[in-house]
Write a protein that binds this DNA or RNA. Structure first.
Lengths: 362, 362
DNA sequence: ATGAAAGCGCTAACAT
DNA sequence: ATGTTAGCGCTTTCAT
């Protein structure tokens, strides 16, 4: 794992000649028209004859001209949308980005991503400011931990879509999963299998102020509610770690330390569920013989035969596609707030089974 | 999984007042100095007295001024580096980005990411052009499929670091894993365990021209070499799919269809190895009893107890950190090419064991 | 329909 | 040490 550095051998020509880029002026000269004309053609604006359009387009082609986004930013649009993502490690976000990419393809808009850090509010703020400073035309924030008040400020400066949060705002659009419904599906599934001691792994809230309406809150709350509705309020056990493999592992160890130990674990996310499976394996417990495990997100890995993790499918691609569409609408001028929620579905697999000695199920 | 859209209820005030941003001129006025002075303070440039620095800094603070990256782009630096990533789904890249983030933290530079698509050269080209058009100060390309000639063109326009490719160029720096050494470690490991029929899962080359020097080429080549060196050239079996769960699954099915079937599979990447484990499980074969499996990358998941995948560790964080450092050096003026290679290490786990009936090992 | 020209926010000569 | 000023490439009035 050590690194080895080597310098350059051959003595080529390491000059970086700042070979001036083709500008709108070059195109104008080449096509024998004004820069205004070129600009109009570029933006499909009114006031250019078909003949002129053709000449300009030909010149653009010949010279290989591409607009300079930074210069555009100073006056009009950059045709760039900024996406804030907590961390690229979460595969669910990859689905969302696939959807964003699908929707943006051919629209002329380019997505640029910045990582927020998922637990560090200061880092997330810097990332968002970086997007604003770079004059993107609109911002999509995925599961941000930024307080609502600040989101509304950002929305005051530019079009904003927030994905994965439940609060209602008139300043930005919201795209989210119906986490309440999804959680109800899993928890009931476990209860119907005869489980009573069902543990839950949740995430720590970021920051110290009022927690923002992120999915982990809804999932934990609904877990409590459904447990209570089934007379299981005494069995509620939540380990608050993080939705990562490590978090799932630690949370599971914590839950297993209880006596008697839970017979089922609802990890709030697949990533945490993978850690749970690992911890159970290490503890010599069989799944689902001794302990059932369910996740949330239905990541690709959950479907693998040797994992076969019961999970809740939320259509991340659809969420991403919708978010991007809403954002483009806002860029084009819409100001009324919209909310879009996807309805999740339970995907039962082999990681959940009847509670030991319950007589339920097979 | 259906979606539900809801419009806005309350009739707030949906205006987006383009509340003019604070500019350098505002700061100058507030501090009673010239814009030049402010610019100098901003860039820590020569020619500003401590007294003036303080006043300007105070004004910046009071007004909440942040430089306008687009305006900066037109003259000097944007303090932005662009990172091209094939796809955020690959967890190894997450490690690399962690390293990049570590190195950039506090440097004043911000990383923006664009996704290339990993198999679509046109998409990758667009992504790179997008970075160039946005006037980033330098570009880091992770495992690009772009031909070397084009990379050198890009390097002619701005500082460039290429991560994960082996060709030598005097125009850009290269940061890569010693894939030859890593592959030799795994393949020998399997051979020492008594395996002879060792299959390999590789990736399809992107594009139709001469394949670029990406890791999958080196890994496949070294696999052939080591097999041959041990008199196993007759046992060479490569399934060429892709380094994803699906690719690993399909590749494994393909390898298992051979008769006699392999007793070990070296998947070129952990992601593919996970798919391999799934396919083996589905086929009712035990790991490592019937078939051993090894991956490459040593992702977090590989270490989970219930997976316990033998893998090769390449320090992605170190690679990312180094790449970012080299890029900043180039931004600061270095032009001589550098190459940095990390040395991989084998991490044997439970997914590899003695070949059935070989008598080797326990 | 077309083009001249002002200016977006900043940096870097070039004065002073 | 400090300030004046000319652009960077583009969009957008506003004449013509």
């Amino acid at each position: 794992m050590a690194g080895h550095m080597a310098g350059h051998r051959a003595g080529h020509r390491p000059e970086r000649e700042p070979r001036r880029r083709v500008t709108i002026a070059d195109v104008a000269r080449h096509a024998q028209v004004s820069t205004t004309a070129v600009s109009k053609v570029l933006r499909n604006a009114y006031g250019a004859s078909p003949a002129m359009r053709d000449r300009v387009k030909a010149a653009i082609e010949e010279l290989g001209y591409r607009p300079h986004a930074a210069a555009r930013a100073m006056r009009g649009r950059t045709f760039t949308i900024g996406v804030l993502i907590p961390h690229v490690r979460n595969p669910f976000f990859a689905d969302v980005l696939d959807g964003v990419g699908e929707q943006l393809g051919g629209s002329g808009y380019q997505a640029i991503l910045v990582q927020g850090g998922s637990t560090d509010l200061a880092a997330e703020s810097r990332a968002v400011e970086a997007l604003i400073d770079r004059q993107v035309d609109g911002i999509l924030m995925i599961a941000p931990i930024t307080p609502k008040s600040r989101l509304e400020e950002v929305a005051g400066e530019m079009p904003l879509i927030v994905l994965g949060r439940h609060e209602r705002s008139s300043a930005y659009d919201a795209v989210f999963d119906d986490d309440d419904a999804g959680t109800e599906l899993v928890v009931r599934h476990l209860i119907e299998l005869g489980h009573r001691r069902i543990g839950h792994i949740s995430q720590r809230n970021a920051g110290r102020g009022k927690p923002v309406a992120l999915p982990h809150l809804t999932r934990a709350e609904t877990y409590r509610r459904v447990m209570t509705e089934h007379g299981l309020e005494g069995e509620i056990a939540i380990a608050t770690t993080s939705w990562t493999e490590e978090g799932g592992y630690d949370g599971t160890r914590e839950l297993l330390a209880r006596s008697p130990r839970p017979t089922a674990i609802f990890a709030g996310a697949d990533q945490a569920a993978f850690g749970a499976l690992s911890a159970l394996h290490e503890a010599g417990l069989s799944v689902p013989g001794d302990v059932s495990v369910a996740g949330y997100d239905n990541t690709r890995l959950a479907a693998m035969a040797n994992i076969s993790l019961t999970s809740v499918d939320q259509d991340g691609t659809l969420m991403g596609r919708t978010a991007a569409r809403l954002l483009l609408e806002r860029v084009e001028g819409r100001t009324a707030a919209m909310r879009f929620s996807v309805t999740p579905a339970l995907v039962p697999r082999l990681s959940t089974g009847p509670a030991p000695g319950s007589g339920a199920g097979a």
